[in-house]
Write a protein that binds this DNA or RNA. Structure first.
Lengths: 200, 200
DNA sequence: CGTCATAAACCGACTGGTTGGTATTAGTTT
DNA sequence: AAACTAATACCAACCAGTCGGTTTATGACG
C-alpha cells in the first residue's frame, strides 16, 4: 500500500467513526479521544489529518453537500416524466432509509450546530436553498413538458420541500412511529396528483 | 417580598436565562456558571432550585408541552369552522414568529438532545404524536361538520404536520430567507382548499 | 412589641475529572 | 537522509457538582 493510500484510508476511517459518533451521541459529547480510539488511530495522527475537531465536522458537512449535488445531477440527467422522477427519488430515499436510518441523524446535528457556528449555518442555509431551487426547477420542467399544472412554482416547491423536511425530521425523531420512507412515497405521490401529475 | 415569591422569581429567572442561552449557544456549550451569572444568582442557589443542569432542560421542555396543551384546548373550544380555525392558528403562529423568532430555536435543541437522552426523546415523540392526533381530530371534525372532504384523515394529518414542521424548521435555520410565518398561512390555506375547505 | 428558634434561600470557593490541543519522540517509506 | 506518519506524554482551561457557612423570612412565645 502506498503512502497516499494509507493516508487516505486513516483519514476516511476517522471521518466514518466521527460521523457515526456525531450522529449517535452528538457533536459536543463526542471527544477526540473517543474518535481516535474508535478509528484505531493515535491523537497525533488525528491532528496530522485535521487541524481541529470542528474541521472534521465541516468536512462531513461538505461531503454531504457534495453528495447532494451528485444526486441532483443524477436526477436532472435521468429520463422519464417529472412525476416519475419524483417517485423514483422518493423510492430512493425510502431505500436508503430502510438500509441505514441512522444515516440521517447527523442532519439534526448539522442543524443544531448551525445556530452557534456561522460557517455551519451558511452551509445549511445553502443546502436548503439549493433543494428549494432544485425542486422549483423540477416542477417547472414538469409544467413545460406538460406533465404538471402549477401556478406558483416557488410556493409549490416550498410546500414540497417542507413536506420532505417535515417527514425527514419525524423519521429522525420517531423512527419506530411509522414507516416514514413509505409515507414519503405516498405523500409525494399525493402531491404530484394534486398538481395534476400525469405519469407520462 | 415573601420567601415564596422570591424563590419563584429566582427560579423563573434561571429558567429564562437558560432557555435563552440554550437556544442561542446550545445545551452543551452553555455552562451552569454562565447561567448563574446571567441570572445574577450563585451556583448554590442554582443547585438549590434544580438538582442538575439537565433538570433545567427538562423543566423547559415540560413547560413547552404544557403550553402546547393550553393551545390545543383553546383551539378545540373555539368557534368557527375548521378551515377558519386552522387559519386562525396559522395567524397565531405568524404573530408569535414575528414577535419572537428566536423563541423557536430551542426546539432544535430539544430535538438534537433527544438522540442522546431517552427522557427527552420520549417527550419529543410524545409532542409529535400529540400534534398528529390533534390535527387528525381537527380534520375529522371538519369532515363531520361538512367543511372538509378527506379520505384518509391519518395521512392528511401527517401531511399537515409535516408541512408545519418543515416550515418551522426552515424558519429556524434560515430566518432571513423568507417570511415563513406568512408562508405558513398561505400554504395551510392552500392545503385547506385542496381538501375542499368551505369557510363556513 | 421584641426576641428568638428554625428552616428555607443563598453564597462562592473548591474538587475531581475531562477536554481540545501541543510538543516531543519514534518509526516507516521513498 | 528527507519526508511523512504515528504514538505518548503532557498542559492549561473548563465544567458539573459539592459543601460548609451566611443571610433572610416567618411564626411562635413571653
Amino acid at each position: 500500500m502506498t503512502q497516499e493510500e494509507r493516508s487516505q484510508e486513516t483519514r476516511s476511517r476517522i471521518l466514518a467513526v466521527a460521523e457515526q459518533s456525531f450522529a449517535e451521541h452528538g457533536y459536543d459529547v463526542t471527544s477526540v479521544d473517543s474518535i481516535c480510539h474508535g478509528a484505531g488511530v493515535s491523537k497525533g495522527a488525528f491532528y496530522h489529518h485535521f487541524p481541529s475537531k470542528g474541521s472534521v465536522f465541516v468536512a462531513l458537512l461538505n461531503a454531504w453537500l457534495a453528495e447532494l449535488d451528485r444526486q441532483f445531477t443524477a436526477v436532472q440527467t435521468g429520463d422519464g416524466s417529472v412525476p416519475r422522477q419524483v417517485a423514483a427519488m422518493a423510492a430512493g430515499v425510502n431505500e436508503i432509509y430502510h438500509v441505514a436510518g441512522t444515516k440521517w441523524n447527523i442532519l439534526l446535528e448539522f442543524w443544531a450546530k448551525s445556530k452557534a457556528d456561522p460557517e455551519v449555518a451558511h452551509s445549511t442555509i445553502d443546502m436548503i436553498r439549493r433543494y428549494q431551487g432544485f425542486f422549483q426547477q423540477v416542477l417547472e420542467r414538469g409544467v413545460s413538458e406538460g406533465s404538471l399544472q402549477v401556478k406558483d412554482s416557488n410556493l409549490a416547491a416550498t410546500l414540497m420541500l417542507s413536506v420532505v423536511l417535515g417527514l425527514l425530521l419525524q423519521g429522525i425523531l420517531d423512527p419506530e412511529g411509522q414507516d416514514w420512507g413509505a409515507l414519503m412515497q405516498r405523500v409525494l405521490a399525493m402531491l404530484m396528483d394534486s398538481m395534476g401529475g400525469r405519469k407520462s
